[in-house]
């Protein structure tokens, strides 16, 4: 099953790369996709049936807008901290507990946190994310958890789980 999914995905990727619909190009694309599927099908994600459910794509588009909004806010915040003459930064690493269960969701959450300016996810150990933060607002887990991952978590749960 995952071999077939990887085959279809890589064939779409091939068409996007070449954008040429002649017969010879399509034949070469099919052969190349088969080779790719044979080599990397073993490592591909397991629950591929989730790719067939349309509502996940809808939530993904919603999530993109939320992510861009959060990113803009964080950008302005970091720019304020850099341009302020006193440089009000208070860096440190915090430990955040997430309720997400699947590995894919944790990966997406960690990458979203890293791409937002000001926060970088350092590591994931079991359910805990270790995050480097440019300005630690408080040291209470009840307070800082919603600030960091609150906006992303519920949408990621709808996308992936």
């Amino acid at each position: 099953m995952k071999y077939i999914t990887l085959f279809i995905l890589s064939f779409i990727f091939w068409l996007l790369l070449t954008f040429d619909f002649s017969v010879s190009n399509l034949i070469v694309g099919v052969v190349a996709s088969i080779i790719t599927a044979l080599f990397f099908g073993k490592f591909f994600i397991t629950n591929v049936y989730k790719l067939l459910q349309p509502r996940r794509y809808f939530w993904f588009i919603v999530y993109l807008f939320i992510f861009i909004w959060e990113c803009l806010k964080a950008n302005l915040d970091v720019a304020y901290r850099v341009l302020h003459p006193a440089m009000p930064i208070r860096p440190g690493i915090v430990k955040v507990k997430t309720t997400l269960k699947s590995d894919m969701a944790k990966m997406l959450l960690a990458n979203s946190i890293t791409m937002t300016p000001g926060t970088i996810s350092v590591d994931i150990i079991d359910d805990y994310l270790y995050i480097h933060w440019i300005y630690i607002r408080s040291e209470d887990p009840e307070v800082y958890t919603p600030i960091i991952i609150g906006a992303f978590e519920k949408y990621i749960k709808r996308i992936i789980e």
Binding site: S10, D103, M107, A110
Partner: peptide, 19 residues
């Protein structure tokens, strides 16, 4: 996990680009 899952998604596409 972060590196593993990203590699699972991306590696096939990199191979395809090489081809």
């Amino acid at each position: 996990i972060i590196v593993k899952k990203t590699a699972q998604l991306i590696a096939g596409m990199i191979f395809m680009y090489g081809i």
